[in-house]
Design a protein around this nucleic acid. Structure first.
Length: 650
DNA sequence: TGTGATGTTGCCCGT
DNA sequence: TACGGGCAACATCAC
């Protein structure tokens, strides 16, 4: 005699009904009842950096999937239970007499830990747990296994490992019907999670009430929460989530066969807006409203039929499918490295560069604490001005403001601002930048975000640090008129094209005509009754030289996050040659610069002051070898590394 | 312990 | 206007 299965389907980052291997596994059980639930996770509410725009996108996806469930069974909908899964599920499994718990596998470091605890608790209660990989093209753990347990560090590696794992699973149809949910009456005690520290507190305008009205929410109906319930400010993004939205948009993308089959990412513009140059599928992929395998196969079908017809097609890595391969590469890298993927300290795949504003480390756990050292107050100011879109470089500021406002920026725009914050400008830790993106991006995916910051800062995946994005030239290439800047930096909307990328060079008369004064550090909106836009935080060309010297030196020294000298803090001895970074004086702790309270070491300088380049020993030697170099610098405005080294060989 | 090609997307100049 | 060379230089991989 077998008991009819009573199943909980636990939704997580798979907010869709189509092509869901885990949901299919649940339905294959032929359950007598199926409870579609969401366990409200306090980690996401309080401890992960989640801005209001991503909250709204998540709630959109939840509402949409709930409505889709109801369309298949009018008695059913998404049941949102206000308690974290780890404490909630053991009680729930008992209360609802559950036989099977089914969910999609999560290879994020946090997700894995949470799921291990849930699985252990469920199995102790005799509940069968079924998980399926569904977030990536291939199961990331399988990819790692096929790659000898190592993280995949290039697309070729991913493709080779993927081929060993097997074919990318074909898509699964949306179910035609869903079982009834069982009785939702609940008589269990709610355990309220610890809300401290609440890193998202600054996003709130009211009281955070995620857990205060009980497990079933303020109306006792397990409804999807509102931003209000979370005490959050209204969202500012125009982008809305949901499986329905993206499936419709996907058809529009695929209907344009030329676009789909010849897509090349580097040829899409970071400066285009309304509409953007790409179709913005990333946040839907993140929340699982769109299946990456479904997307992949639909594109592949079009591409292969065109290939047969001998029509032009693009290929990975720049093609649409190539973009999905990169996503899998980062997921498999994270699956192999776990928590340390997200930090420099103790990370054997992350180069150690003595960045400014390094993360504080808890040497007991080996993990970063979420705080950072302010090794130099001027660098903290630069960081805040970068974050707030007030660097005085309009291209950078426009991108950062679009990010904050809309929660999405083009991939190349991410490159530009990431390079600028780290190796090609401020020389500030990539971990600071990754945190800002984590908070503001609606498509924030830990694996991809960390991977891309690693890439751009040249600590991992990529090493051609001499390829440096100019905050002036790169934007101009895409948008010579400066329309993108005018849109997101309205202070400069009337600035002539000639000065739009470098308004501090505009004559006072032109500034006056444009109704803006280029002055100050971005703290004042108006100066003398005129709209103000800040002066640049530094002279870019000078700063780029400092960065290049620093990178060259750090590469030469060749430390990684797990090098003994990084772990014990003695790394600083190796950086006595004046390379950029917080390496001077006697400071230097594990992974960073503990002991920064030594006030004498803080060289506070005026915001408008231009820093003098510190040449490394190596660099000096090369310069003296060819004195002609000094008189052969290019125009400061457009300079690249070429200028400084031109003819150095001959 | 070589050599040359390749690597998702630099910039500038010359043709 | 699109493309290739030069710039100085990184890691990895096939040979």
């Amino acid at each position: 005699m077998s008991i009819k299965p009573r199943v909980i389907y636990w939704f997580r980052t798979d907010l869709r009904l189509h092509d869901s291997p885990a949901l299919q596994a649940a339905l294959d059980l032929k359950p007598s009842v199926l409870y579609p639930i969401w366990a409200w996770d306090s980690h996401y509410v309080y401890h992960a950096r989640v801005g209001v725009n991503r909250w709204q996108f998540l709630l959109d996806c939840m509402n949409d999937v709930s409505q889709s469930i109801t369309k298949l069974n009018e008695k059913s909908r998404l049941l949102v239970l206000r308690e974290p899964a780890v404490t909630l599920l053991p009680k729930l499994l008992k209360a609802w007499k559950i036989t099977h718990l089914v969910f999609e596998k999560d290879t994020d470091a946090y997700g894995r830990q949470r799921d291990e605890r849930v699985i252990a608790a469920a199995e102790k209660l005799g509940v069968e747990v079924i998980t399926r990989s569904g977030r990536t093209l291939w199961d990331s753990d399988d990819v790692v296994k096929a790659h000898d347990g190592k993280p995949t560090m290039s697309i070729t590696q991913l493709q080779k490992a993927g081929a060993k794992v097997g074919l990318i699973a074909p898509p699964i149809d949306t179910p035609k019907s869903l079982p009834d949910p069982g009785d939702t009456a609940l008589d269990i005690e709610q355990e309220q999670p610890d809300s401290k520290p609440d890193v998202n507190d600054k996003e709130r305008q009211g009281e955070e009430k995620s857990y205060s009205s009980g497990i079933s929410g303020p109306n006792g109906d397990f409804a999807v929460p509102t931003l209000q319930e979370l005490g959050l400010k209204p969202a500012t993004t125009p982008h809305r989530g949901g499986e329905t939205v993206i499936l419709e948009r996907l058809e529009r993308i695929l209907a344009d066969e030329d676009y789909t089959a010849t897509f090349e990412k580097p040829k899409t513009s970071p400066a285009q807006f309304e509409p953007q140059s790409t179709f913005l599928t990333s946040p839907y992929l993140h929340f699982g409203a769109l299946s990456c395998r479904y997307f992949y196969h639909r594109v592949e079908t079009i591409v292969s039929s065109r290939r047969k017809a001998k029509k032009a097609v693009s290929e990975p890595p720049t093609s649409l499918t190539g973009q999905l391969l990169f996503r899998d590469m980062y997921f498999a890298a994270q699956a192999a490295l776990g928590w340390k993927f997200g930090q420099t300290y103790n990370n054997d795949h992350c180069r150690f560069i003595p960045w400014h504003l390094p993360s504080k480390v808890d040497t007991k756990t080996g993990l970063v604490t979420g705080e950072y050292e302010i090794d130099d107050q001027a660098k903290e100011t630069e960081f805040q001005r970068w974050r707030n879109g007030k660097t005085g470089f309009p291209w950078i500021d426009a991108i950062m403001r679009q990010l904050r406002q809309e929660g999405w920026i083009h991939h190349l725009a991410r490159h530009s601002v990431a390079c600028f914050l780290t190796r090609g400008g401020c020389y500030i830790s990539w971990e600071r930048g990754a945190e800002v993106f984590e908070e503001w991006l609606i498509d924030h995916e830990a694996a991809c975000n960390i991977g891309n910051w690693n890439w751009l800062s040249c600590v991992s995946f990529y090493s051609q640090f001499y390829r440096c994005y100019s905050p002036v030239a790169f934007g101009k290439k895409w948008d010579p008129e400066g329309d993108y800047i005018r849109r997101y930096v309205p202070e400069l909307k009337d600035m002539p094209k000639k000065w739009i990328y470098e308004p501090h060079k505009a004559p006072i008369a032109d500034q006056k005509k444009a109704g803006v004064v280029i002055k100050g550090g971005g703290t004042e909106e108006e100066i003398g009754g005129v709209t103000a836009y800040p002066k640049p935080i530094f002279d870019f060309n000078t700063q780029r030289d400092i960065c290049l010297d620093g990178m060259k030196n750090a590469y030469r020294i060749g430390l990684y996050g797990n090098s003994p000298k990084v772990l014990d803090g003695t790394w600083k001895e190796l950086f006595a040659d004046g390379a950029a970074g917080p390496t001077e004086g006697q400071r230097g702790g594990p992974g960073g610069t503990t002991g920064a309270e030594d006030a004498d070491m803080h060289q506070h300088h005026d915001e408008d002051e231009v820093t003098t380049p510190k040449k490394s020993v190596e660099r000096e030697k090369r310069s003296t070898k060819s004195p002609a170099v000094k008189n052969h610098k290019r125009e400061r405005s457009q300079g690249t590394l070429d200028g400084a080294f031109k003819k150095a060989k001959g």
